[in-house]
Every structure is written in C-alpha cells, then in structure tokens.
Amino acid sequence: MKKITMYTTPTCVFCPAIKQFLSKNDITYTEIDVSKDEAALEEMKNISGQMSVPVTVIGDEVITGYDKKKLQKALDA
C-alpha cells in the first residue's frame, strides 16, 4: 500500500473533494493542516514547489490541485 499524505488548510475547497475521492476508494491517508504548522508548510513547499493547497503525495507522485485523473493514475501506478 502506498503512503498517501495530503497537505490542506481548513478552508481549502478542493480538499474535501479529494478526501471523498480517496474514501470512496477505501484508501487511508494522512492529512497535514499547513495553516497551523509552519514546518509542514515549508515541507509542502519543498516537495511541490507550490504555495497552494491541496498537495497530495501518493508514493513518489506529487499532485497539486484537484485532478481526479492524475490521482487515479498515481493510485494505479
């Protein structure tokens, strides 16, 4: 099983959509709220080069934003 981490904020509107997508597929993930954790925010920036949520890490794949096709591809890979 691949390790899945999601970087989110409490107000991120695309995050619930991704969570729903993962739950539908019975996939467990770790959620990190970057609004409360500066170190986590730096970590997210380093991994993705982005200052924007959501960032979802599936194994070695880094997916920014809500892109169902990319998420599915990373899960299937």
Binding site: T9, T11, C12, V13, F14, S35, E38, M51, V53
Partner: peptide, 17 residues
C-alpha cells in the same frame, strides 16, 4: 500560479500567515 499567484483566496489565505 501556485507560487504566489492565487485565484482561490478561500483555499490559500491560511498559507499566507
């Protein structure tokens, strides 16, 4: 885009602490 240029303030405002 995503590196400081934002179109969803609601999503990313907390990142700009």
């Amino acid at each position: 885009i995503g590196k400081g240029v934002v179109y969803c303030a609601t999503c990313d405002a907390p990142v700009y602490q």
